[in-house]
Amino acid sequence: MLKQFNHSNYHSICDKLAQSDADLANIIKAHGYPPLWSRPNTFETLVHIILEQQVSLASALSALNKLKEYIQEITPARVLLLKDEEFKACYFSRQKTTYTKYLAEAILSGQINLTELEQLSDDVIRTKLTALKGIGNWTADVYLMFVLQHADIFPIGDLAAVNALKRVKSLPKETTREEVIAIAEKWVPYRTVASMLLWHYYLSARTPAPPSPPRKGGL
């Protein structure tokens, strides 16, 4: 059975995490509950996540909005009508142009069906997504967490989440990936919601706060 979170159980999951982890409890005490960040399960959303790879949220959103302004609706069919020069005019790098076109072709050919992914397990979804050019574990993590709202994902490739964990746990900067993963294991089966709390902490320390978690991950 898939473990998911939604508006009806989100705060109660936060409370469960707070009961078992004093550092997460302190985040809620200081900053309140984190927003329930979510995105629709669409081609446009996946393009947006691809754009966010290794850049700021602001620049990714700027490129997405420029593309939307240019073609009105971001669909696989419309994207594939564009030439590389037109992508470049919408602030897409050559690499992300390639990834976006490949994703569009995969959806139109039936290689990937976003609606069908909603019924599959984390591992199967990850396997299907990472088989696509330009999509790695970080992109799959963001999709699982924000789009499908699967409850037990920790995005180890996400710098904001990892750095926030180190800060709230007072860990040295040289703390290893394996040590971070071991700490996150204590939040099973709600590692996604714990990550939301970490992002909430990260954002609350910054002014002004952007509308959604800052992420600089890999593919």
Rank of each mutant, 00 (worst) to 15 (best):
G32R: 01
K83E: 12
K66E: 08
S56A: 15
T45L: 05
R78W: 05
Y33D: 01
E86Q: 12
Q54G: 14
L36D: 09
Q72M: 10
R78A: 14
G32T: 00
I71H: 03
V55P: 13
L80T: 13
L80C: 14
A60N: 04
Y33K: 03
I49V: 14
L80D: 12
E44W: 02
V79P: 07
S56H: 13
N41W: 11
P40T: 04
E85A: 15
T42R: 04
P40G: 13
L57W: 09
P76I: 00
L64E: 10
A30D: 08
L46V: 07
E44L: 04
L57V: 11
E44A: 08
A58T: 10
L67K: 04
Y33V: 01
H48T: 02
Q72C: 15
E85G: 08
L67D: 04
L57S: 13
N41H: 12
L46D: 05
I71E: 02
L36M: 10
E86P: 01
S59F: 03
A77T: 08
I74Q: 02
E52N: 14
K83A: 12
S56W: 11
G32E: 01
L67H: 09
S59K: 07
N65M: 03
T42K: 12
K68P: 02
L57P: 05
L57E: 06
S38G: 12
P76H: 07
T75Y: 11
R39D: 10
R78V: 06
I74P: 05
P35E: 03
I50N: 09
S56G: 15
P35Y: 05
P34V: 03
R78C: 06
V47H: 04
I74V: 15
A77Q: 14
H31S: 10
A60Y: 03
L81G: 10
V79R: 00
I49D: 07
D84K: 12
Q54H: 15
E52C: 15
S56C: 09
E85L: 10
P76R: 11
L81I: 06
H48Q: 07
Q72N: 13
L51G: 06
V79F: 08
R78T: 11
F43I: 04
S38L: 09
